[in-house]
Design a protein around this nucleic acid. Structure first.
Lengths: 213, 213
DNA sequence: TAGATTGTTAATCGATTAACAATC
DNA sequence: TAGATTGTTAATCGATTAACAATC
């Protein structure tokens, strides 16, 4: 829960971006070229007012009397969500959840680069994940971070484990944690972004937030 | 996004309950018997005001001048979160993510009973999950729902698949969807609760919400 | 009693919705 | 031009925070 309200765009707006993105890219794929705020609102389950307010946070890219061009919306929102640079991520914990998420991070999620994966179990260490990344011993995490400076750590381990690796990560200068299984590191480390995410939306939107801090 | 604001307790409050629960059960396990709103606020990363407001939604269970008894808090919040009756859940999709979640649902999450799991892949059908549940053909989903009336469906399949099974589930009377991988069934089915969840908190809090609709 | 801390009402803050002039 | 729809300001709504009397 670090400070991140310097910029004018509020968190609720940011959290809606991925949903906009999905509808708009669907439309784009279906060859739809134009959409009005009220059509988008119906799809999103909100009001036309909110749609216009949201888009205007970033500088109105619609046309009065006409609506919004799907391709303009798509490119503007893509820019916001995916930015220029991938986030370098390390995965910690390669159990069932970790493996599922490694697949998501490397194949489906945009804006991420999975640098490495770590586990403490001898059964896991040395194994190759489906995405091609080799599982390393978590004991080497500090050295790895010192050498390669990941941006975010994706935690797929129980709470006790998360509490144990957190100091290492913080000392190594990792600034973001995406926590898929637990919750409450939030208060222990000031100035660090700890978020509980689910697949799909949050990953993208949080990526955006972090880059805009 | 069904209507669920009949009751006085707001969604933000409900979403905080699992986090309260975790801190309070930690304290309980450590033998701490008493806590003040300001101590809890510090742990939660919020204000003492908010803590008191939150607890008072459910009828003040503190003592003026003293604070809150940890065991009273724990039992009150447990009652709210876990209620009397488990939610009967079916899992749809037993890929990596689905398997991870089946383990969570059957072992860690309170308030759920995993009745059955479905997949469309012949490789999956007939396999037994680690939790002992047998994977069935998704073609049998409608019949299963008609016979056993699950409360919620946990979707761990791609969006196209989710869109395909949704009508079956809706027609079978399933009222809640916990969607771990995608997002936007929300608008298509009025009166149905579709939520995107992450492990841990949301499952519990959503359980609460559904039971209180 | 004095100090502490709740329960609860009032004030503030922020987000959503409504309204409407600008303009395509 | 008339109709449609945005951009933007104002009004509403809800959640958080502050204040303080009640009371242990």
């Amino acid at each position: 829960m670090a400070a991140q309200n310097q910029n004018k765009v509020s968190l609720p707006v940011i959290k809606r971006l991925p949903k906009y993105y999905r509808y708009i890219s669907d439309m784009h794929n279906n060859g739809i070229v134009k959409v009005s705020s009220s059509e988008l609102a119906r799809m999103m389950g909100t009001t036309a007012s909110q749609v216009r307010q949201d888009f205007n946070c970033f500088g109105g890219f619609g046309q009065q009397g006409i609506g919004y061009h799907v391709d303009v919306l798509l490119s503007e929102i893509s820019k916001l969500l995916f930015s220029e640079k991938n986030l370098n991520a390390v995965l910690i914990g390669t159990g069932r959840l970790g493996r599922a998420i490694s697949g998501y991070l490397s194949a489906e999620a945009r804006g991420y680069h999975l640098m490495a994966a770590f586990d403490k179990s001898p059964d896991e260490i040395g194994r190759e994940l489906q995405c091609g990344v080799m599982v390393q011993d978590v004991a080497e995490l500090a050295a790895f971070c010192a050498a390669h400076h990941p941006d975010v750590a994706v935690l797929c381990i129980p709470r006790a484990g998360a509490k144990a690796v957190a100091p290492t990560l913080v000392e190594a200068g990792v600034k973001g944690y995406w926590n898929f299984s637990h919750y409450d590191l939030s208060v222990d480390y000031e100035g660090i972004t700890v978020e509980n995410v689910h697949l799909g939306d949050s990953l993208m939107s949080l990526g955006y937030r972090v880059r805009n801090d």
